[in-house]
Computed example of a mutant assay.
Amino acid sequence: MTHEGHVETEALTGGARTRARVLDAAARLIGTVGIVRATTKEIAREAGCSEAALYKHFRDKEEIFVRVLRERAPRLAAAVAELPGRAGEDTVREQLEAVVRIAVPFYRRSFPMAGSLFASPDLLAAHRRKLGDAGPHHVSSHLADYLRAEQRLGRVSSTIDPDAAAMLLIGACFHRAFLELFYADEAPDGALRPAGAEEFAAGTVRALLDGVLAPGA
């Protein structure tokens, strides 16, 4: 799997290849026509397989949606879940910039799919039940746990609220992804500041750390 969550289906065989084709097809359809119109029939047609073959790998459309988010988008949840165990490694700045570089593409990829889901209360409720406790709140909570671990090491100021700082960083990534999608290639001058992805990551983390880094850290 590449950084953007794309799977090279040509390298797969048999059932694994069919499963990958279904997920690729679902991601394309959900991002273009929306999750409500992306029926299992349409997904199977787009994937070049039968509905029966589709159901050999997935129970229903909701499971396909969950797997698309988990396997066809940059792996934000996995990346932040590992952070608390890496406290003390590298610098806080480097760790947080890495989160930003994953989070913005993740939200940019997820918005079209999630937007369709929010348009259907029944599908949203079904998706929420399938996630159980593995909901999107874990992204900020794992990041907050990492900041707490760095506080204990004296590398982050003891006066800051780790939960608030985590929400600030993730919120900035979420908004950046929204702006990039909204404007596409037609953003007016100054709409995206900083303009580049690397500059955004560095600038956002720098703005946050000016308020949380302990002196000399």
Rank of each mutant, 00 (worst) to 15 (best):
A134N: 14
F106E: 06
H142M: 08
F111C: 03
A78R: 13
P112I: 01
A81N: 00
A207H: 11
R176P: 04
A16V: 06
F111D: 07
V212C: 10
L29A: 00
G203A: 10
Y107A: 07
G196Q: 05
G196N: 11
G48H: 04
A81Q: 05
E198L: 00
V100R: 06
R128N: 10
R72T: 05
D122G: 04
L213A: 08
R176W: 09
E51I: 05
C173W: 01
A25G: 00
Y107R: 00
K61I: 06
A87C: 05
G171E: 02
H3M: 15
G34R: 07
S116N: 08
I43L: 04
A144K: 00
H137Q: 15
I170A: 02
T13H: 14
A78T: 13
E10M: 14
L213E: 01
K41W: 12
L131N: 04
G203M: 01
A77H: 12
T2M: 13
E94D: 13
G34C: 09
Q95Y: 07
F200N: 05
G154N: 10
V80D: 04
D210I: 12
R93L: 06
V212S: 03
A126F: 07
V100C: 06
E51H: 06
Y146P: 02
V104K: 08
Q151H: 04
E150S: 07
E180H: 01
Q151A: 08
A20Y: 04
A16P: 09
L168E: 11
S110G: 12
I30A: 13
A114N: 15
V205I: 07
L123V: 06
K130W: 08
V68N: 10
A44S: 04
H57V: 02
C173N: 02
D161L: 03
D163M: 11
P215L: 05
V92M: 00
Q95G: 01
S116E: 08
M1E: 09
G135W: 13
A38Q: 05
R129Q: 09
V80W: 09
A202G: 01
V100F: 05
A195I: 10
R93P: 00
A20P: 11
I30L: 15
F182A: 14
A144V: 05
T9K: 12
P188S: 00
